[in-house]
Amino acid sequence: MKELVEFFRRYSKWFVFVFYVVLSCVMLFNSDPYRRHLWLTSASTVASGLYAASNNVTSYFSLRETNEDLNRRNAVLESEVVNLREQVQRMKLAEYTDTLQLPDSVGHFDFIVANVINNSIHRPFNYLTIDKGTADGVRPEQGVIDHSGVVGTVSVAGTHYARVISLLNPNFRLSCKIKGSEHFGSLVWEGNDPSGALLEELPRHTVFTVGDTVVTSGYSAVFPAGLPVGVILEDHKNHKENFFTLRVKLFADFSRLSNVQIVVNNDRDEIMAVEASDASTITDDTGIKVKPADRQ
């Protein structure tokens, strides 16, 4: 017995070392980002408190850019309002009001505005932390966008803060299509360039030109159809395969994200329930073919 104690004491260094290494490896290789304990993420109370405090100071640094973005966005929306108003006016004049069917794909969605309080772009798996949580209606697997395009999806939500899987994270795949075409593929980040990603699994017969806009397909409960994602830069791989892989330049500038919107799908619970009951045959009444959420 005494020798056993002596043995453990003598080699305690190695036992402690192995214990910590195993503990770290468990955290390291438990890679499902949706199944994390809240306190092990940047949305935990201490971490988010620290980031919120520093964001109080640093958010002022980018006010000029934020203001310019808002002005630009405002101008775009302004012109859109004018155009739509004219359109509605014309249709009223043509007495089509009783049969007018405006596209309602955005009707199911609400948006929650949030500030990014922490963000990374240079790691193999990047995340953001935002200052809205379950108390504000944020839930895991809701989409996150900014004024220029898709940013990511919520993975862990605390009471007042949430952690978002960035589009710059290979764990996140986004169902996308080329604007004006109905063929869809899957957008995934390849791990080093924060300004671009790859659009994979696009059928070979898809017609496209470099510079075409890539938008969300809407084949999920996470993002509405038609949200801008990026533009096609080039055809990436050899043509022997049955699918195109295209390099896409992302619209969202991840190096200076400040304000984002969380996409709340009001029909999500219903879609999920229907999906859970029989995933193979469902097409809902808006024509959205219900597929599993954007991550696969």
């Binding site: 402690v16 503990l23 955290m27 993420t41 940047s42 971490a47 922490n118 995340y127």
Partner: peptide
Amino acid sequence: AMTIGFLTGLAVDILSDTPGVNAL
């Protein structure tokens, strides 16, 4: 020393969403 090292790494991991990397 290893306990301090592990806790330091873990703190950085929690704050930067890199679970286990810096702890190891």
